[in-house]
């Protein structure tokens, strides 16, 4: 396993995925300290936010939901050798946004993709022409069938000169190792691009799935401090680094990450969100995207979990963005 881990890179997603818990309202002071501390911990990439918002409009979205040039310049100055990552939904950005990200020193642009592959590839071409590394993040991958994934990967492979990485993002937190291994095989057999994995821990499998992804050929791993991310959250960065050390891979400083955790916990914008734990568990178990949370919340308030499961059964075949209504908190 150590030999496999030696090839892997960590992408911290705290400022981005963690933003779902605080309306993306991390302070500039925190963001600066965050990138410095994670660089010192040896983390390879830090994703610093969304460009121009998430998949759905969010009222009064904060700094890490917009990634303005001013914000990026601040971070670049604070940690000049850190590889900064920005993620975007193509519907939210124009070519001029991509060029500005490149001018601000963003190393890796990640583009969310699900059913909008053609327009996403067009934007990838812009990013590549600006000299950026480009990743296609296939979101809600647990809802994509094998045949559909094969078709996507085939098209991605045909455009591989525009790309560096293809990600499987378990946005719903639904995958188990066996399912993930099948998806990984499909991607690995269809493309020579590097592969990344983004875990959500809704059913407690973020660590197991990430280890599976590495064994199946992934070389990019997403994680966040304390797992701070949408819903139950992501793979915990500190646990992943501790795991790496247990396998004899000691590139990362656990001590530095633990100091970063202490700083995060003391920040007023840190949100240890667990008051909707039951909803997130069910969403993960039922493979429901965040857009279905409203219904789950309502049903949970009046029915037993078994009834919720029965009532939500059709959503298992969910494949689009669905209704944009949100209840309780923000999500992606």
């Amino acid at each position: 396993m150590r030999q496999l881990l030696l090839k892997t890179q960590i992408v911290d997603v705290t400022l981005r995925d963690g933003g779902y818990r605080n309306n993306f309202a991390f302070s500039p002071e925190y963001a600066v300290e965050h990138v410095q501390r994670l660089y010192e911990a040896g983390v390879d990439y830090v994703e610093v936010g969304y460009r121009n918002g998430s998949v759905l409009p969010i009222e009064n979205i904060g700094m890490t939901g917009l990634c303005t040039a001013q914000y990026l310049a601040l971070l670049h100055e604070a940690a000049p050798h850190l590889k900064l990552v920005v993620i975007a939904h193509v519907k939210n950005i124009k070519a001029s946004d991509v060029r500005e990200l490149a001018d601000c020193g963003v190393n890796l642009l990640r583009l969310c993709v699900n059913s909008n592959l053609d327009e996403t590839l067009s934007m990838a071409e812009v990013a590549k022409s600006c000299g950026m590394n480009v990743s296609l993040n296939i979101v809600r991958v647990s809802s994509i069938g094998t045949e559909q994934l094969e078709q996507m990967v085939s098209k991605i492979e045909a455009h591989k000169k525009l790309l560096d990485v293809v990600y499987l993002a378990d946005s719903n937190g639904n995958l188990n190792p066996a399912h993930l291994a099948r998806l990984m095989a499909t991607v690995r057999n269809g493309t020579t691009l590097r592969i990344g994995y983004h875990a959500h821990d809704n059913i407690g499998l973020a660590m197991a799935n990430t280890i599976t992804a590495i064994r199946q050929g992934a070389t990019y791993v997403d994680a966040s401090l304390l797992g701070m991310g949408k819903g139950i959250g992501n793979l915990r960065l500190e646990q992943w680094i501790a795991y790496c050390r247990s396998e004899g891979f000691e590139k990362y400083s656990l001590e530095s990450v633990l100091r970063a955790i202490k700083r995060l916990r003391s920040d007023p914008m840190f949100v240890q969100e667990d008051h909707e734990y039951e909803v997130d568990m069910l969403c993960g178990s039922l493979n429901l995207p965040f857009t279905e949370r409203k219904g789950v919340v309502e049903r949970l308030s009046t029915q037993s979990a078994k009834h919720v499961e029965e009532a939500s059964a059709p959503a298992l075949s969910f494949s689009g963005y669905g209704a944009p209504s949100l209840v309780g908190r923000l999500g992606s």
Partner: peptide, 12 residues
């Protein structure tokens, strides 16, 4: 020196 990061080499 400003460009160097030897952590990956140390790890491997």
């Amino acid at each position: 020196l400003f460009e160097l990061d030897a952590r990956a080499e140390a790890a491997s």
